[in-house]
Design a protein around this nucleic acid. Sequence first.
RNA 1: CGGGGCGUGGCGCAGUCGGCUAGCGCGCUGCGUUUGGGACGCAGAGGUCGUCGGUUCAAGUCCGACCGCCCCGACCA
Length: 483
Amino acid sequence: MSQQGVTPRSKDYSKWYTDVVLKSELADYAPVRGCMIIKPYGYELWENVKSGLDTRFKATGHQNAYFPLFIPMSFLKKEAEHVEGFSPELAVVTIGGGEELEEPLVVRPTSETVIGHAFSQWIQSYRDLPLLINQWANVVRWEMRTRLFLRTTEFLWQEGHTAHETYEEAQEETLRMLDIYEDFAVNDAAIPVIKGRKSSQEKFAGADTSYTIEGMMGNKWALQMGTSHNLGQNFAKAFDIKYLDKNNEQQFCWTTSWGVSTRMVGAIIMAHGDDKGLRMPPRIAPIQVVLVPIFKTEEEKAKVMDAVARVADSLLAVRIRLHVDDREELTPGFKFNDWEMRGVPLRMEIGPKDVANGTVALARRDIPGKEDKQIVPQEGIIPTIMRVLNDIQHGMLRQARSFRDENLHEVKDYEEFKKVIDDGWALIWHCGTAECEKRIQEDTKASSRCFPLDLNDDKESKKAKCAVCGKPAEGKAYFGRAY
RNA sequence: CGGGGCGUGGCGCAGUCGGCUAGCGCGCUGCGUUUGGGACGCAGAGGUCGUCGGUUCAAGUCCGACCGCCCCGACCA
């Protein structure tokens, strides 16, 4: 595996993506259609995503719990819009232990229903609120068409579920978690995102309002990288989630749910990758620094490996994720290309010259070509590495942001919209109706991504008209091709 | 489910007017020489040709059915 390069992005973006995932050994196809095997390198990346998010959830008062994989079919049916939205993609178990089951069990596509059921038992009084729960789990949705990490039949994710006393508190929670997703995407994954509200067409089945963070991939398509939903009292009413308020009166709770999945890994691949393969932002890279020893003779080897061990120990001591590639059957040149394809942000070389001079060679993944190699002293290597990794992290964000910004277009009318839509996203006054959105989708293949939160204020929207159908506008919406 | 492509060692492919022992590149194993941008030599290992059935003296090759995968569309985190 992992020889030579990947298909260039310009030649075939889909092929490039698949090549990168397979050749860099993030994942493999599974024996079952639409399913994937996440290999150690890919799983470690996911674990880094996980811990970045989990830390933020805990810091905002959420607790992890685990709810069952199987859900009684009848639960799904309790919320009309929810069952309607999910029934086409359910996997259902009808036989257990060789016996036909009395009631079919759904393999969870999401857990609002089981968790709603649990919440109804846990919550008695306003003193039990807010209830802030998260679970890390796998879910199954029978998709028509799948793609590694972006859309697989089974995927890993986190789903937060919370219950509150008032609409306002639920809304505050919904937006707080959206902010947390943005913070992770921007600061850890180095992907700029647009926060916004989903159109009725794109909204989660069973939610009052859905919010999203949308990222732009290398081919200018959009990817929904996380969603946060204000569920209103829909699930509270369906599952009888009630509390006794201060006036001794029964009230329905207001609930939220929010999720980020292994799709985030796909976003990281597509937002940063180049023709050489992956580029990992240092904060979440499974390997931050790869160290390649170089020597010819046994005598050189002894000295080089001695220096390698010393430098490696000092980096590991400050918890830099370092890998020493001491395979002797491969040439350094091969290793350079190999680790570049795998997206390791920083490469360090130590050879006889470095031993003689007390130096190491550094090469940054985010700067193309080999001319960026710099020789730095071993003395004070830790602060040097820290600084360079930090530079790479910020450089990647800057690069992704300028690419994204170059491909955002504000347009006045549908004609202009059609002109720019193959070349990025278009911001346009939009009525938000399903009919109008479907028409746009048929004409251009673009769907509404969101009504950006920071570009919409009510005063302006009240006067505006939809640029496509002329009906009163709901706000300015971004449209684009999407995964 | 509609359209397109494809199933031959681990990976990528050739062989497909039926014919003899199924071949090539990469990878893999051993030994030696190599090593600052994808090393080389020598010697090896590894294949029910997707499955089932049919035609034939003879099937990877022809016919039929089935299974599976990938890409493009309708559904979706």
